[in-house]
């Protein structure tokens, strides 16, 4: 009987929150393999390789030294070499560059988390900021903040700061907004009933904050932090573009771009994605580890 309604049943059970883990793992893997297969076929068609054509073996198009569309195995090898082919301190090692970028991103992320939370606290408590500043914080989400990156680098360079700090400031300026807005929502999430109860207890503003507002805001904080982390990493990478920086994933991308090194671009991009995935994944794990701070579904 369950077979007969499988088509609907899968959908319904998935919505009901009963994970069918095998399907949940299998589906993305199958799709990913299909995408890679299409990609591989495209790579064999797109990359002209006279030698391979002469030999009559099509997969050798996969190993064109200057490919238009590198094949998945070629990218995999390039990424592997970039990650593990050189000592970690070598400027050719992508681990080294990822570490440089991640350092700046984490610094900016920390800055954004602290400043964003502080500003949200101020906005929630000061009516002038709530009505005068918050609209601008919301509007600023539609502004391309990242466009200011080159300017931040130059202005801070003028003040004598270079390297990590300008990149961290760029990261923070991006990551700051989701934290502020998320925390504003979170600190306002307690209901009137709850606030009234604390008032009957004659609780001070500080007590209301620590006993009610802050704990209720945590479920809003972690999703905001995940967005902030992804933005911080993008910010750090873009912050490395205009600096003439020698190290970092952004600098690596720019060098690959100037020299037309397709494989290096792909490898750098993959490492950047892995870095971002790991950093955000760590926050997601933290969120899962704190179940009492999760939003009720």
């Amino acid at each position: 009987m369950s077979e007969a309604i499988a088509g609907i049943g899968v959908f319904r059970t998935a919505r009901a929150g009963v994970p069918q883990w095998s399907r949940r793992i299998l589906a993305p893997v199958v799709i990913l393999c299909a995408l890679l297969a299409i990609w591989s076929i495209a790579a064999t068609l797109v990359n002209p390789s006279p030698a391979a054509a002469a030999a009559g073996i099509w997969p050798s198009n996969w190993w064109n030294p200057r490919p238009t569309l590198p094949s998945p195995p070629q990218i995999a090898v390039a990424t592997w070499t970039g990650l593990f082919g050189y000592p970690v301190t070598s400027p050719r090692s992508l681990i080294y560059h990822a570490a440089v970028t991640l350092e700046a991103a984490l610094a900016g992320f920390g800055l954004a988390a602290v400043l964003g939370t502080a500003l949200a606290t101020a906005i929630v408590h000061v009516r002038l900021l709530d009505r005068g500043l918050l609209p601008w914080v919301i509007v600023s989400q539609s502004i391309p903040v990242l466009a200011t990156a080159p300017m931040v680098v130059v202005a801070m360079g003028y003040m004598g700061f270079s390297g990590l700090l300008p990149k961290a400031v760029i990261s923070a300026s991006l990551a700051f907004f989701p934290v502020t807005i998320g925390m504003c929502k979170g600190l306002r999430s307690p209901q009137t009933v709850q606030l009234d109860l604390l008032r009957t207890y004659n609780a001070s503003g500080r007590q209301v904050f620590w006993a009610l507002r802050w704990p209720s805001a945590i479920p809003y904080l972690l999703p905001a932090l995940k967005i902030a982390m992804a933005l911080a990493i993008t910010g750090a990478i873009v912050g490395e573009l205009p600096t003439g920086a020698q190290a970092g994933l952004g600098a690596r991308l720019l060098i690959a771009s100037y020299n037309g090194l397709m494989l290096l671009m792909w490898a750098t991009l993959i490492v950047a994605s892995l870095t971002a995935g790991l950093a955000v994944g760590a926050l997601a794990l933290l969120e899962r580890a704190l179940p009492r701070f999760r939003l009720p579904a």
């Binding site: 238009t68 992804a230 990493i233 993008t234 990478i237 873009v238 994933l249 952004g250 991308l253 720019l254 690959a256 771009s257 037309g260 397709m262 671009m265 792909w266 750098t268 991009l269 950047a272 994605s273 971002a276 995935g277 955000v280």
Partner: peptide
């Protein structure tokens, strides 16, 4: 996953 990664990094590839 795509929403997490810095997609703008594909710019040099697209330029090529």
């Amino acid at each position: 996953f795509a929403s997490v990664i810095p997609i703008v990094g594909v710019a040099p590839i697209m330029i090529l």
